[in-house]
Amino acid sequence: MENLKYYFLSLIFIITCFNCSNETVEDKETNDLDPTNYYEALNISYGDDVNQKFDLYLPANRNSDTKTIILVHGGGWTSGDKSDMNPIKDLLRQDFPNLAIANINYRLADDNNKAYPMQVQDITAFFNYLKSNKIKYSISENIGFIGISAGGHLSLLWSYAFDNGNNTDMVCSIVGPTNFTDPAYLNNTSVELQEALDLFGVDPTISFLEEASPYHQVTDSAPPTILFYGGKDPLIPTTQGTDLRDKLENLGVVNQLTLYPDAGHGWVGLELLDTWAKLKVFINTHL
């Protein structure tokens, strides 16, 4: 299980070769929210649990039209931290200086606290907090998501099934699971993989697995979706990407899938550069 928890970090660690900024950790917000100035605050609470916190980065000269991109970390639903997404946050600040960025934590699953619905409830709580403070922060209600691994799953699921106001303009999943009823999952023989799937319950019903699967929740009102997968990923079968792509196509939802044939649960070099180049275009087009 430990290997499973940290597979997703291979992608994050490689991204650190890009420009990264130094940060000073703050435990609370300041009162200086002049929208003409850049603003950041770390570890803002959106709930009572220690993990219900987020970091916020607001651009200078923002206004009620400023959109927010939300980063959702991976870690097999049981581990990981928003700090794992800081390299992507730095890339976004560098290439999208007019976007607000929120980097969120959420409650982690264990034997007594199942991943679903707890973690999508956290995203709802966070979004409601952001929405109720939009005037304070001088931002709009429109958002986009970038999620990696488990964070990709949560980003897709919330955008497809829990965004009641249709506020999500685009969603990106990098190696995120999409369908827990995939035969590759139901009939798997991997101990580590099964431990992760058991976070959604031991011998759960098919209807429950469908409820927790973006593939089964997506409709024709889903936001534009961009997907990235590795052809040799030991945790995420390629069908998790190709089947969702096919369903999005059938529903008429704008989508883009990139499959790197020789990559696993993360990639480096030219493939990584390709990911960021495609994601930048997608964000520019849809957010």
Rank of each mutant, 00 (worst) to 15 (best):
P87G: 08
Y38P: 01
N179W: 02
P261R: 00
D220T: 08
L186T: 14
L11K: 00
N167T: 07
N31W: 02
L273A: 15
N167F: 14
V175P: 03
H153V: 01
G201C: 08
A212D: 04
F162C: 13
Q52H: 10
E2Y: 13
I15V: 11
I226L: 09
G76C: 11
E192A: 11
T66I: 06
T124G: 09
S64G: 04
M1S: 11
E141Q: 14
Q217I: 01
P35F: 07
G266M: 04
T181H: 05
N187Q: 14
N37H: 13
Q194A: 09
V202H: 10
V202Q: 12
N105H: 08
L199S: 11
Q119Y: 08
A263K: 08
Q194I: 06
G252R: 05
T68P: 07
L248S: 06
A196L: 15
K247F: 02
G165D: 15
L193A: 12
I123L: 15
G176C: 10
N179Y: 07
P204D: 01
T275Y: 11
H73W: 01
K280F: 15
N103W: 00
S207E: 15
I14Y: 14
P35N: 08
A115M: 09
K28E: 13
S138F: 01
I123T: 04
S138D: 06
D111Q: 11
F162K: 15
H265V: 02
E249W: 03
N255G: 07
W158L: 00
N250H: 11
H265F: 10
P214K: 01
L42N: 13
